[in-house]
Nucleic acid binder design. Structure first.
Ligand code: MN
Ligand code: MN
Ligand code: MN
Ligand code: MN
Lengths: 222, 222
DNA sequence: GTTAATTTTTAAGTTTGCTTAAAATATAAT
DNA sequence: ATTATATTTTAAGCAAACTTAAAAATTAAC
């Protein structure tokens, strides 16, 4: 498998899981930074290899074999991110770029050694679940995007999106991490801000941020 | 720089340093497993980029810029090998293959972090010197190939070749490592064996092995 | 110093993963 | 239900890094 097919399968897997108004193909264009023609090309190519189901103008879908390959790449990516943060102490905003390249050049043998060394972590530094050697991982239940959270309710941050550098900068500035608690004070105002209480102070989160944070509700302490 | 140029420059650098009857071009064909035509192609291409000096039918030579790039790849390779052995405890015979791929996907930032983590090692697991961040490394003085060693003299193994799996298997079986001492009992016999005393016993080393071990003489203890 | 063997280069062609421009189809709007 | 807009596919083509086969230059042999 080449770097391009790795990235294609991984992207299909990830885009498929969070549903969106746009079709997978269209979002692949943005995610992989290639033309639409390249997507069709690759789709046909991988369909013929039995990795995706492709029919003209229909939504792309991974076959079992394709999902297996995608999960293997996701596993390598997330284990590398975890390793780089925990062992080499690389700042969490820097590890995604490194992992994006290392994931394609890491044997199954090596990644299993890394997994063992880390003692089989379940979550990466951004809160994303790490597939185990069989491709299985924890389901995140009750999870929602922060922007969908009811006001006057308490949440814990479960995951943060981390593809965008601006997002990461914001998280760092406001000490936003998976595991942190927050309370939604008011839902989005007319300027696109949502007000939350965090780390003892109230801050206004821009819509972009509020859409990038995944949270789960917790029982209120009276 | 692509993987192919990385490997090409690294190979030119390495083949240039140990001189041999065959020309560099011819040995590149073996080392990189490509046709002669591909070597000429790449040579022209890199010459035009100012990385090597190329004139038809003349020996290839790296420019300063080319050597710099080559050393950067060598640095990444050897630091990865060291890291995989020391930190992840991967057996030394397995690390070369992994490093061969990782070396091309590792940023300068990351490799410097690895260097720092390892506390700036000077030698890799096979005894090869590791270029520092400026491309400088220890010269190995008085070093020779074992087969050139005088009989009835004592040596220390400085480096071992490790591209070949058979070699590594032999080293493991006989506990041959950099740093080990040995004494040459007799030079190569008519069957191609050289007799040495090592680890308290006498063993016959086939020519191939004796050509793969680099040693330096030590003063005899009377 | 010719001739022969070896090495290197040139020439032509392939594959992968892209591109742009157009045509085809699907989706949305009136 | 047409028409307009957006998306996807087809078509043609390009660049990198290879290949094989033939031609050219070098090196070795006699
Ligand atoms: Mn990531
Ligand atoms: Mn990637
Ligand atoms: Mn190596
Ligand atoms: Mn390599």
């Amino acid at each position: 498998m080449s770097v391009s097919t790795d990235n294609f399968l991984k992207a299909v897997y990830q885009l498929h899981s969070d549903k969106h108004q746009k079709a997978v193909s269209a979002r692949l264009v943005e995610r992989l930074n290639v033309s639409g023609a390249a997507i069709t090309d690759m789709a046909k190519h991988l369909a013929q290899k039995g990795l995706i189901e492709y029919e003209p103008y229909k939504e792309l879908r991974l076959t079992n074999k394709g999902r297996e390959k995608a999960l293997a790449v996701v596993r390598k990516h997330r284990l590398w991110e975890t390793f780089l943060v925990q062992v080499l102490q690389i700042p969490w905003e820097k590890v995604h770029g490194e992992a994006e390249r290392l994931e394609h050049q890491t044997s199954d043998y090596l990644i299993d050694k890394i997994d063992e060394f880390l003692d089989y972590p379940k979550l990466d530094p951004h809160g994303d679940p790490i597939p185990d050697v069989k491709g299985e991982m924890d389901e995140t239940i009750n999870e929602m995007v922060l922007i969908a959270g009811k006001s006057d309710a308490d949440f814990i941050i479960t995951r943060v999106q981390h593809h965008d550098e601006d997002l990461m900068e914001f998280y760092n500035k406001h000490n936003i991490r998976p595991g942190k608690g927050l309370r939604v004070i008011s839902k989005m105002d007319k300027f696109g801000f949502i007000s939350v209480e965090m780390n003892g102070s109230t801050i206004a989160l821009p819509e972009k941020i509020a859409r990038s944070l995944y949270v789960k509700p917790i029982a209120k302490n009276p």
